[in-house]
Simulated assay, not measured.
Amino acid sequence: MMTNLFSIFDPSTNIFNIPLNWLSTFMGILFIPYTFWLIPNRHHYVWNFILNKLHNEFKILLKNNYFQGSTFIFISLFSFILFNNFLGLFPYIFTSTSHLTLSLSISLPLWLSFMIYGWLNNTQHMFIHMIPQGTPTILMPFMTMIETISNIIRPGTLAVRLTANMIAGHLLMTLLSSTSSSLPNYLIMFLILIQIMLLILESAVAIIQSYVIAILSTLYSSEVN
Rank of each mutant, 00 (worst) to 15 (best):
I116T: 10
F26S: 06
I153E: 14
S221K: 03
L20C: 09
S180I: 07
P33E: 04
L20D: 01
S105Q: 12
L110Q: 09
L183I: 09
W119Q: 13
F127Y: 10
N48C: 07
M130G: 10
S182R: 01
I208T: 11
L62N: 08
M189N: 03
G28A: 03
S221W: 01
F9Q: 05
I15W: 14
F6C: 04
M166Q: 15
M166F: 05
N41H: 02
T144N: 11
H125G: 08
P136W: 00
I200E: 12
S210F: 02
L183W: 05
M130R: 14
G88M: 10
N14A: 09
L183E: 14
A206L: 02
G156L: 14
A168I: 01
S113N: 10
L51I: 12
R42F: 13
Y92P: 00
Y66S: 01
I29F: 14
L201K: 15
S203Q: 07
E147H: 12
T157Y: 13
S113M: 11
P132M: 06
T179S: 14
S210Q: 02
R42T: 12
Y34K: 09
N64D: 15
P91K: 11
V212M: 12
T218K: 01
N52D: 07
N21S: 10
M130T: 09
P33I: 01
G28Q: 02
F72K: 11
S105C: 12
F31D: 06
V160N: 10
F78W: 15
N14P: 00
L62H: 08
S103C: 13
L77C: 06
F80W: 15
S113K: 09
F58R: 04
I200M: 13
G169H: 06
L199F: 05
N56A: 13
E147F: 08
T135H: 09
F142C: 10
F72E: 04
S105I: 08
T101W: 06
L87R: 01
N4P: 00
L120W: 03
I208V: 07
F127E: 10
I146L: 13
L176W: 03
T123Q: 11
Y45V: 10
M143K: 12
S12M: 05
T137N: 13
N48T: 07
H125E: 06
T35W: 11
I60R: 06
Q209W: 02
E147M: 15
Y34R: 05
F86A: 10
M2D: 15
F74M: 07
P91A: 04
M130W: 00
T218P: 00
N52Y: 04
P141Q: 05
I60E: 08
W47M: 14
V224T: 12
T137W: 02
S105P: 03
T144Q: 13
W22G: 07
N56V: 01
I128F: 10
F58Q: 11
F67L: 03
Q209R: 07
L20Y: 07
T148F: 15
T157S: 10
